[in-house]
Write a protein that binds this DNA or RNA. Structure first.
Lengths: 142, 142
DNA sequence: AAGCATTTTGCAACAAAGTTGCATTCATCG
DNA sequence: CGATGAATGCAACTTTGTTGCAAAATGCTT
């Protein structure tokens, strides 16, 4: 087992999931991806597994907090692996800005850009906060 | 024509759209809605028109900047009418925070809560910014 | 107000995305 | 290694979104 496989293996075990080849493979895809992925992307990369398996695996990863969803305006949900702390604590706390590139269509986590706090009108109770910036990414502008 | 109908009529004309009964009705639904709506919601309210017409109408409204999309993590896109200035200038500039209630599932525009600015890493070019807060809304908490 | 050109609508057919039940296969643990 | 419970693949189905085309409605001109 190489480093990536070991990491994938460990994450699954730490989350009380049985280690199956589909879960390992899909998780490895996420771990080595530089951008957020949607169901369709996974399906194209991991052709050896059934569509249904991919749906169920994504749902499992979501439930365990291994991946987090990134909101989009294009009838899809993109997912990215949660940060180390996020996976460890089990409590999802995704405090960074996401960037969607209008040119290449890729979404990435800007881990270094923290979401600024906002003050809600009284009566509103905040649980989670998401910030997505659209624009042109580093690669496409270069 | 009541006030709502007049307003709807005016918005369509100002945007160079022919005034058809479906467009008027759908726009009135948006104008009188307190929350953001997705395709499905419209379809349930406006049962007299074809599914396809609703898809096309939403697309037309989007193109003209009459409504704006709000990103979600549930494989849907919610829409809300743009603010006065937004419709007037034709240039979409949606600078407020959106709130999604985990209890009732409704999304609303917090027009009074401005999106704070963020500084992106160098190389990134920002065009648009979206902020969605999840939690419990005023009504559900009361 | 009537006719005409153009746009919009509804229908039908289709494509894509997501869900569910069930039998088979696989991972884990003793 | 064998038993047990979980995960997978398949099939069938539902929902969601798209496209082409004929019919209908809109707005313009007269």
């Amino acid at each position: 087992m190489n480093k990536l496989e070991k990491q994938s293996d460990l994450i699954l075990k730490n989350n009380g999931l049985s280690v199956t080849s589909s879960r390992k493979k899909i998780l490895e895809v996420f771990l080595s991806a530089e951008t957020a992925l949607e169901h369709q992307d996974i399906e194209k990369i991991v052709t050896q597994y059934d569509r249904v398996t991919i749906y169920r695996t994504l749902q499992t990863f979501l439930d365990k907090g291994i991946i987090h969803p990134i909101p989009t305006t294009d009838n899809s949900i993109k997912y990215a692996v949660c940060s180390e702390t996020c996976v460890k604590t089990g409590h999802h706390h995704d405090n960074h800005v996401h960037f969607f590139c209008d040119k290449c269509g890729k979404t990435e986590c800007l881990d270094d850009v923290a979401i600024p706090s906002v003050i809600l009108p009284s009566g509103y109770d905040m649980h989670e906060i998401n910030m997505v910036v659209n624009g042109t990414c580093k690669t496409c502008r270069a």
